[in-house]
Amino acid sequence: MATPTRTDRSDPAGPPPTAPQGRREPTALRSRLHRWGHLASPYLFVAPFFLVFAAFGLFPLLYTGWLSLHRVSLYNVDKADWVGLQNYSDLLFGPPSHYFWNALGNTVTLGVLSTVPQLLAALGLAHLLNYRLPARGFFRTALLAPYATSVAAATLVFALIFSPEGGMANWLLGLVGAGPVRWEAGPWSSQIAVSVIVIWRWTGYNALIYLAAMQAIPRELYEAAAIDGANRWQQFRNVTVPELRPTILFTVVVSSIGATQLFGEPYLFGGQSGHQGGADHQYETLGIFMYDQGFHSSMLGRASAIAWIMFGLLLLVGLANTLIARRLRSAT
């Protein structure tokens, strides 16, 4: 009997039909497009941010750095003479160094006078609003009213309050037997007045941040502290503050950055007398000094150098707060 061949054992129906070549290519093309779209879609979603940042953030930063190495006039921007680090040297050691160090010192003192009371008051207000008070929703909404007020409106109102003639601040001092104060004339009185404006505008904003963080603290911690006999102050010190440590560091960093960039409040506070920053530069900040060098003295290169020094200060502030945060985190 003959052995069947390989072809005899195969399916009599024959091999399955293959798809035409003309139909396979569109399917493969669609699969490749789908795979590319899946890979590229995250980058397309974030691309608008990077495009806007490149146009309005990165390019001005690099262009300002280029200007800081040149002598450029406001009235002839196309003509720039290379001077290297001369603008930085003049600010630190040259003729304008006195005004620069004065503005830097005023920026630091104004930052301390406005940031420390602001954050302490915000922490206290948030702690009070965290309890079940009557009309608690109204008070929470009212905290945002100063933040929503424009800088110009708030500063002009406070300039009238601190006016040496008929101002409410001197009227209140008269009630306790103190004499009138020329708030804008003295170095400390003017900085206190400007700090009050900053404190009024930003305390409510930081209080809401603290309040949101407090509401995320587990109630079991407070209940356990109450069972151990802790009163409200002890609960606040031993439970609330340690749990709020990351939030407090965040507000310190943001407030420090805002204090370094302080411009509107001191500029408009001196606008009533025509002296932005004070007649003796007693509350002139780095922001006002940069504006004066760029637009009043027509020295864009020097103004750009001030901007880069401010940028370096912001980096140092952020780095210092990061190191403090790591030290506190490792300590716990």
Score class of each variant (00 low, 15 high):
S297H: 14
D11Y: 04
L67D: 05
A259R: 11
Q276D: 01
A152K: 08
G177P: 02
F236L: 00
A80R: 15
P12Q: 00
S41W: 15
R24I: 12
S150P: 10
G287E: 09
F269K: 05
T109R: 14
N170S: 00
V194T: 02
F138N: 00
M299H: 15
F139T: 05
L172G: 00
H98Q: 10
A122S: 08
V194M: 06
R219I: 06
S304W: 10
A121H: 01
D90K: 12
Q276E: 10
G229W: 03
T155V: 08
A212G: 14
M310T: 06
R32H: 04
A152E: 02
Y205E: 11
F158I: 11
L160A: 13
D280L: 15
P60I: 00
F250C: 00
T247P: 01
A225G: 13
T155N: 05
M1P: 12
A28R: 14
G177N: 08
I161R: 09
P242W: 01
S297R: 15
L160N: 07
I192N: 08
G277Q: 04
P17C: 06
S273F: 02
M299F: 04
T7H: 13
Y75T: 14
S297N: 15
S163P: 05
Y63H: 07
A320G: 13
S31M: 12
R302Y: 04
R237N: 00
A103D: 09
A103G: 02
H296D: 07
W101S: 12
G37A: 07
Y43S: 12
L208K: 09
Y43R: 13
Q261P: 11
A331T: 08
Q21H: 11
Y43L: 13
Q118D: 07
R201H: 12
L144W: 04
R329N: 10
R327T: 13
E284M: 13
N238M: 14
F50G: 03
G105M: 07
L208T: 13
A154L: 12
L119Q: 08
T251V: 08
W171G: 04
A80H: 13
A80N: 06
D292S: 06
A178L: 15
Y147T: 05
